[in-house]
C-alpha cells in the first residue's frame, strides 16, 4: 500500500529524535560520571540512552524498508516502462543474478566484501537496462605502534566502490571489447591494449583500452565520445564504461546509496525530485549515447 510522504517523514523524524535523544543522554551520562560522584541514577540514563539509540535506529531502518517497498517501488514503476524496483535484490545470487554481473564489466576490482541491493530494471525507448547499487570493500592491513611501543597489525575493510552499476543493451554488434576508464584499470585476462583516439580532450579525460583497435574506433564515434564526456562532466572523476558482448556496462561511483534515506534530510517533494533526477539520468544516458538508434541490427 502506497502512503503519502508525510507518513514516512513522521516516522523518520521520530527515529531521528530518538537517536539524537539517546546520544544526548549518553553524553550526559559520561559528563556526570566525570564531574560528579557516580550515582545509580546515571546507569538509568545510560540504559535509557542506549535503548533510544537502538529503537531509533531500528525505526529508521524499518521506515526506510517500508518507504522503498511501498512508495519507491510504485513511484519508479510509474516512471519507467516495464520498470520494477526490488530493494532486496541486487547483482547477487538472489533471484538468478550474480556478482559476475558486476565483474563482467572487466574494470571493477573483485571485492573481499560484496553488497548489492536496490535492483531496478526496465525498458527505456526500447532499450533494456538493469541497474543496482553495489558496495565493494577490500581487506587491508594497517600497521601501527601502540602506547607501549609495540608494532601491531590491524585488519580493516576499506570501501573502494559505492555506487551504481548499469547494464544496457547496445545498438551495435561488435567483436572484441572496449573499456573507457577514468579511475579504474582493466581487470581481466584478456590482452587489452591502450589506444589513443583522435579526440585530444577525450584522451586526456579517459584511458581507452581495447582488444581490437578497429572496434574502439567503431564504437567511439566523435558524437559518442562527446556524449561520454557529457556524462563524465555530470559525474566528474567517477565513471567507467565497458563495451563487452554487445552490452554497455556503466559504473558510477557516488560514495553513497542511491535510494537510501539520509538522516535529517526530509522526505518531501525535493527528495522525490532527487529520485526523479536519478531516473532522468538513465533516460539521458539512452538518449545522449543514442542507444535507441537501433539501425545497425537486423530485425
Amino acid at each position: 500500500m502506497k502512503r503519502d510522504l508525510a507518513y514516512y517523514q513522521k516516522r523518520k523524524s521520530f527515529a531521528e529524535i530518538g537517536v539524537v535523544a539517546g546520544i544526548l543522554l549518553m553524553a550526559l551520562f559520561v559528563l556526570l560520571s566525570i564531574v560528579t560522584e557516580f550515582m545509580e541514577f546515571y546507569t538509568i540514563l545510560m540504559v535509557l540512552g542506549l535503548v533510544l539509540i537502538f529503537v531509533g535506529t531500528g525505526l529508521f531502518q524499518w521506515t526506510q524498508r517500508k518507504f522503498k517497498q511501498e512508495y519507491l517501488k510504485s513511484y519508479l514503476s510509474d516512471l519507467i516502462e516495464d520498470g520494477e524496483f526490488i530493494p532486496k535484490k541486487g547483482f547477487n545470487r538472489v533471484q538468478g543474478l550474480h556478482p559476475n554481473d558486476v565483474y563482467m564489466s572487466e574494470f571493477i576490482e573483485r571485492a573481499d566484501r560484496y553488497y548489492s541491493y536496490d535492483y531496478l530494471h526496465g525498458v527505456i525507448d526500447g532499450i533494456k537496462f538493469q541497474s543496482s547499487d553495489v558496495h565493494l570493500q577490500r581487506l587491508e592491513y594497517r600497521t601501527y605502534t601502540d602506547s607501549k611501543g609495540n608494532r601491531k597489525r590491524k585488519r580493516q575493510y576499506v570501501t573502494f566502490f559505492k555506487g551504481r552499476v548499469f547494464h544496457f543493451d547496445f545498438n551495435k554488434n561488435f567483436d572484441g571489447c572496449v573499456l573507457v576508464l577514468e579511475r579504474y584499470r582493466p581487470r581481466s585476462n584478456r590482452k587489452y591494449k591502450k589506444v589513443e583516439l583522435e579526440y585530444v580532450d577525450f584522451n586526456k579525460k579517459f584511458k581507452t583500452f581495447t582488444t581490437k583497435e578497429h572496434t574502439a574506433f567503431y564504437i567511439l564515434t566523435p558524437h559518442f565520445m562527446e556524449s561520454l564526456m557529457k556524462v563524465e562532466k555530470e559525474n566528474p572523476g567517477n565513471v567507467g564504461f565497458s563495451f563487452i558482448d554487445n552490452k554497455l556496462y556503466f559504473a558510477l561511483h557516488k560514495n553513497r546509496s542511491t535510494f537510501s534515506l539520509r538522516p535529517f534530510r526530509k522526505i518531501d517533494e525535493r527528495y522525490l525530485q532527487s529520485i526523479h533526477d536519478e531516473v532522468e539520468m538513465i533516460y539521458n544516458m539512452v538518449d545522449d549515447l543514442k542507444l535507441n538508434r537501433n539501425i545497425f541490427k537486423e530485425d
Binding site: K172, H214, F217, T221, F296
Partner: peptide
Amino acid sequence: EHLQASRRMFNA
C-alpha cells in the same frame, strides 16, 4: 560506420 572507423583509425 565501419568505413568511418577504419578511416579514423588510419588517420590517427
